[in-house]
Design a protein around this nucleic acid. Structure first.
Length: 501
DNA sequence: TTAGGGTTAG
């Protein structure tokens, strides 16, 4: 047993599981199911011993970004040579990734042993590795996904030790992406000062700074004042890799949108105008979304007008937000006109547009219009997907029309659309609302049967609703069910014993 | 990381 691994936290165990995680069948909600591999006494999963086409390693077709050609599909004498070349390339790439994965395993083991009496640096030197971008990225990525509350002091040090060592190897230079990965480890562990030091180092080394760097840093700024200062720094920075200036502003605005900093978007937009940079469609779309989120609908419409006056043509994103706004404002007729207009100007509405509209209408409580557009969408040959179904179901659940919700739920199964964790959560909540607790509980099991791993919210919804209905025994059964599967044990305390939610 | 859509409760 390696030293270091003996005290392995679940995060340390994940360091070894990560490559398998990539090749395992992830559940539809993106939440890991319980590990199925063998475990040793320390909780570190052994490699191998699995069956199936993806056992133990990243499927090469995933890494290659292309599927292997199905046997027989590329037949014909002329294709034989190409098939052979493809197969050979495929095999050599697979071998490369298998070897890479083994090297990463060894490096991780060495890093975990680092401490008094063991120099990880020396052990890494002795490996005589050829350091590549892929190798460094994979090691750092494993650390990123393995950080937890137990190792959050140790892992940044290990990551940085490896990062420093790798940066000193001949023929290898850290890229912006690699700095971002270490920064991500620091961010996860609250090492804010270290992140800023890395930023300085990137600048000193002449590396460009990306929107990702900005994203990582802005998330560490707790105060609005700090966020503004960071924005200013990025706008002025010659190493920020977006030029001309409008693109720098747009990159910043877009990042702010992803972290829901709507007021800051307004501020940056004003700054952009004051500095004389003209907005483009992307700028308008982002700022309009921010205005909508802030409830400033008058300004939203003013911007829309202004956009047209400035000669900018709305794009599919503009239509998306506009349809949602019309739906939320319960304006189905205007929405219908807009959909027709979109088709006329060659921007054919997609399932996303219909979903956005239906979502808005459902929030406005106009289920009749939701159903109308849902049917219209299908008439136009646009197949509703799981999100669209879920939006419709959510509308019916909100109106406590469970029969309709159930019909849609059944319909999506018939049409081969698998419900996901959002859909189940909504159905379970709806069934609880109308007092159908037995059905709600059986739906939880149905999820598992269909390979959809419940997330903690699903359990939480069910437990809280059961408790609020005075069904403490049933609630405890759900908690036991969850615990028996070994899921979310670290969150068990949130249920707070036997009290009501 | 220059883009789109969905749940809940805390």
């Amino acid at each position: 047993m390696i030293r270091g691994a003996r005290q392995a936290s679940p995060g340390a165990a994940r360091l070894f599981r990560h490559s398998r995680r990539l090749c395992s069948n992830r559940s539809r909600n993106g939440v890991e199911g319980p590990g199925t591999g063998k475990q040793d006494a320390d909780g570190i999963h052994e490699r191998g011993g699995e069956e199936g086409p993806h056992a133990g390693r990243i499927p090469p077709e995933v890494l290659l970004g292309m599927p292997p050609p199905p046997p027989g599909q590329r037949g014909g004498d002329d294709d034989d040579g190409e098939n052979l070349r493809f197969a050979s390339r495929y095999r050599s790439r697979r071998k490369y990734f298998e070897e890479l994965s083994l090297e990463v395993d060894r490096i991780v083991k060495i890093l975990l042993q680092d401490g008094p009496g063991f120099s990880a640096r020396q052990a890494l030197d002795e490996m005589n590795l050829r350091v590549s971008n892929e190798l460094v990225r994979e090691v750092l990525s494993r650390i990123v996904v393995s950080v937890d509350s137990v190792n959050r002091e140790r892992f940044p040090r290990l990551a940085y030790k490896f990062f420093l060592w790798a940066g000193q190897q001949e023929g290898y230079h850290h890229s912006t992406g690699m700095y971002n990965l270490v920064m991500k480890v620091f961010a996860q562990c609250g090492e804010v000062k270290a992140m800023w030091r890395l930023l300085e180092e990137m600048t000193e080394n002449g590396l460009s700074i990306s929107a990702r760097t900005f994203h990582l840093l802005i998330c560490t700024c707790g105060q609005a004042g700090l966020r503004r200062r960071l924005v200013e720094r990025f706008i002025k920075s010659s190493s920020f890799n977006y030029r001309p200036f409008r693109n720098s502003f747009n990159a910043i605005l877009h990042t702010l949108l992803t972290i829901e900093q709507y007021s800051l978007i307004e501020w940056v937009h004003q700054k952009m105008l004051m500095e004389g940079h003209s907005p483009d469609v992307l700028t308008y779309n982002i700022v309009m979304r921010a205005k909508y989120m802030l409830g400033k609908l008058d300004q939203f419409h003013r911007l829309l007008d202004e956009m047209g006056k400035n000669g900018l043509t709305p794009d599919l994103h503009t239509y998306n937000i506009l349809l949602h706004v019309l739906g939320k404002g319960d304006k189905p007729l205007a929405a219908l006109n807009l959909l027709n207009y979109m088709s006329d100007v060659g921007c054919v509405p997609s399932v996303l547009h219909f979903t956005n509209l239906i979502d808005g209408l459902s929030r406005a409580g106009n289920l009749e219009a939701c159903k109308y557009f849902f049917d219209e969408m299908m008439k136009k040959g646009c197949e509703p997907d799981v999100v669209c179904y879920t939006v419709m179901i959510t509308g019916y659940v909100a109106a406590a029309e469970l029969e309709e919700a159930q019909k849609l739920f059944d319909d999506m199964l018939v049409r081969g659309k698998l419900p996901n964790v959002y859909t189940y959560n909504t159905m379970i909540r709806g069934l609880c609302i109308v007092g159908e607790f037995d059905k709600a509980c059986s739906m939880l099991k149905d999820m598992d049967l269909r390979g959809c791993t419940p997330n903690f919210s699903v359990y939480s919804t069910l437990v809280c609703r059961l408790r609020n209905a005075g069904k403490d025994a049933e609630a405890n059964n759900v908690i036991k069910y969850m615990a028996n599967k070994g899921q979310y044990l670290h969150l068990l305390s949130r249920f707070g014993g036997y009290r009501r939610c």
